[in-house]
Amino acid sequence: MQFWYAIIEMLPFEWTEYGFMKTALLAVMIISPAIALTGTMVVGNRMSFFSHVIGHSALTGLAVGLLFSAADPTPVMILFAVILAVAINIFLSVTKADGDTVMGVFASATTALGIALLSRGGSFSKYTVYLIGDILSINASEIGYLAVILAAVILFWVFLSGRISLISVEPSLLYGKIINPFIVKTAFSILVALIVILSIKWVGILIINSLFILPAAAARIHAKNLRTYFVLSAFIGLISGIAGLMISYYTESSCGAAVVLVSAGIYAISVLLKHIRRSI
């Protein structure tokens, strides 16, 4: 950490004086590419509603977690999200129901349950930090959580990104091969759940899904193959993360929102560029 602070202090900006900004910058640089990279497969497999469900279910997870342990609800939140992720996959595979509708049901049910539990006694307002998130509140020791996420994402990517990509083209192509698509998809769902829960406090329930979707959506427009898709998406995630943090510092508004607005801007420009290229 000391090394990191030393590097940052060499930059000619006013904000480098503040310890929380330095920590937040490191946090953003770890988490936004990790989420963006995972997002490539969320978008590729049409799972954007799934990450939305997991994000919103964090409210219920939080409520349940607080029942068990008021000090640190995170372990229970993780457990809850993982169980939910597996449950949704089993439900979809058994009932063959329409994913979109099922997600809609799960999303509303878990959100409502979370609100109901957390608002007992009229005390919901203390949990608004989970809705909006606050990256500036992260402290140096909590960077460890984010490092875990990054490590998990990289590990998953090295070995399973190919399988997930193949599923995104046609799931049945995996039958007759070694790995069952259901297992791959469930493993990926668990990864998404882990990312969401471990970062929700700093990113915010209302915004996390955009961090998954937007960089990948923009990268998809330009990518010629999977490699460029992955690299571009992670890069757009990184750029939006850093730019968003800076913008939020100077405008004194929410960091998460600024990050999303930057990546939305990149997406809009991407679409525009593509149309211009086409019409030339």
């Binding site: 990517w157 090295v158 070995f159 399973l160 990104s161 190919g162 399988r163 990509s165 193949l166 083209v169 192509l173 091969k177 070694i178 193959n225 999977l226 490699r227 992955f230 690299v231």
Partner: peptide
């Protein structure tokens, strides 16, 4: 990518 993936090659990144 697709041909590599479908023969089980995982390192398309």
């Amino acid at each position: 990518d697709f041909l590599l993936l479908s023969e089980g090659y995982p390192f398309t990144w």
